[in-house]
Write a protein that binds this DNA or RNA. Structure first.
Lengths: 214, 214
DNA sequence: TAGATTGTTAATCGATTAACAATC
DNA sequence: TAGATTGTTAATCGATTAACAATC
C-alpha cells in the first residue's frame, strides 16, 4: 500500500507524531473518533496537512465523521513497520549508551505498542565485554556482523566517541544494517542505501543559543 | 549585524554545522582558507546554499579566494552568541540527565570554543537533592526561579519523565528562561516567545523504522 | 435531510539551485 | 592579467495552505 511513490521525509517525520497523539487519545480519554482538525491541533500541524499526509497512503477517514482512532493507529503502525518487533542494537556502552538502554527498556515495557527493542550491546573495552547491563550481555564489537546476522538486527544506535564513529559506522554498513541513529557529534559518510539519523545534542544547543537575546 | 530580517530556522540550523567544519579544519589540518565548495562538501550542503546562508549576515568571503577560516569562525560564533559563555541547567537527574552532564562536561573541557556549560542541576527527589554529581550540587526544583536568577541561566535541558514535562516547562517559562531542550517524549506547550527544541529519541527511531524493508 | 469533514486540486509560500556579474 | 570564487538575482523545485466537491 506504500513504497510506490516516493514519500517525502517531511511527511514520514510527522507520522510517528500522529501515532503518538492517537495513542494518547485512546489510552487517556478512550477516544473512538478524531478529526483532522483535532489531530492536527494536538500534533502541532494544520488540519489540511494531516489529511494530505495520510492521503499519501490511502483513505483512512470517513467524510463528515473523521478518523476512527483504533483503525488509524493500526494503519500507521503498519505503514511505519511497527506492527512487528524491530530489533535494535547499541554500540558504545558509555553513560549515554547506558541511559538509552534504560530509556528504551522503560519505553518497551510501558508501551505495548512501542515495538523497538534493544537486544544487543557492543563495546570494544575489554573490561566491559562479557559483562551484563540491564539484562543484556555486552559483546565485543569485532563480532558485530556475526551477532547482527544471528539476532536479525535492523537498526544500530551509535554512542561511541566522535573519533570512533566513522569506523564503527563503516562496520555497521558492512554488516548490512541499513538504518543508524548516530549520537556522535560528527557527520558520518554512508552509501546511498543507508539512512543515518543524527541526534546531535551540541548542534541543537548551539542552535538554541542563536535565539537568545544576550 | 543580524536580527534585522527574520532569518529562517533552516538557515540557523546549518550555522553550527558550518562552525563545526571550520573548527575541524583549523584544528586538524590548520587550514587558513576554505571555499564555499569545500565547506559545503564537508557540511553536506551545496556551495550555493553555503554562500546564501552566510550572505544573510554579511560579506565574509573574498572573491576568487574563499573564506578565511579563522575569521569566519569568529563571525559565526558571534552570530550564534557563542562568543561568550552561556549558562545551561539540567532538570531531572536520571540516567539520561547524568549522561548529558558528562557529555557536556567532556565537550566543554575538550573544546575551548564550546561555550555552553551546565552550571546547575535540579531534581525533586529528596534523596538526590543536596548531593553532588560531576562537581555540581543538585538543587530542589522548587527553588528553580531563584537559582536561575542568581546564576543567569539562559537554557534549560529537560530530562524528566513525560508526565512531569509540561509542569516543569511551565515553571521554566515562569522563571524567564526562553530556550528549552526537551528530551521528554511529549509535545509541550509554551508561549510564543519561548523556543523548545525537541530531542525525541523515540520519534527518530520510529521514523527510521519506516525506511526498513521488512 | 442538514451538517460536518474528508480527499484532492489549485494557489501560495518558502527554500534551494543555477547562473553570472563583480572582483579579488 | 587570467583564473577563481564570491555575493546576488532569477529560475526551479517542493512543501504547505486554501478551497471545495464528494459523501458520510
Amino acid at each position: 500500500m506504500n513504497r510506490w511513490k516516493k514519500i517525502s521525509d517531511a511527511v514520514v517525520r510527522r507520522l510517528p507524531l500522529y501515532l503518538r497523539v492517537l495513542d494518547e487519545a485512546s489510552s487517556d480519554d478512550d477516544r473512538q473518533l478524531m478529526s483532522s482538525q483535532e489531530l492536527g491541533q494536538r500534533a502541532g500541524v494544520s488540519p489540511a496537512l494531516v489529511r494530505k499526509d495520510l492521503a499519501w497512503f490511502g483513505e483512512f477517514g470517513k467524510q463528515g465523521v473523521g478518523y476512527e482512532v483504533g483503525f488509524l493507529k493500526e494503519e500507521l503502525r503498519r505503514i511505519l513497520n511497527l506492527d512487528q518487533e524491530i530489533k535494535v542494537c547499541l554500540i558504545g556502552t558509555g553513560s549515554l549508551g547506558h541511559a538509552l538502554v534504560r530509556y528504551n527498556k522503560a519505553r518497551y515495557e510501558q508501551d505495548r505498542s512501542f515495538q523497538m527493542r534493544i537486544v544487543a550491546l557492543f563495546d570494544n573495552d575489554a573490561s566491559k565485554v562479557g559483562t551484563q547491563f540491564e539484562g543484556l550481555t555486552i559483546y565485543p564489537f569485532e563480532d558485530f556482523a556475526k551477532y547482527c546476522r544471528e539476532l536479525d538486527i535492523r537498526i544500530a544506535i551509535v554512542t561511541v566517541p566522535a573519533e570512533a564513529a566513522q569506523h564503527v559506522v563503516d562496520r555497521v554498513v558492512d554488516a548490512n544494517v541499513r538504518a543508524i541513529l548516530n549520537f556522535a557529534p560528527v557527520k558520518v559518510s554512508v552509501p546511498e542505501n543507508v539512512l543515518v539519523a543524527t541526534a546531535d545534542l551540541s548542534l541543537e544547543l548551539q542552535r538554541l543559543a542563536y535565539y537568545l537575546e544576550v
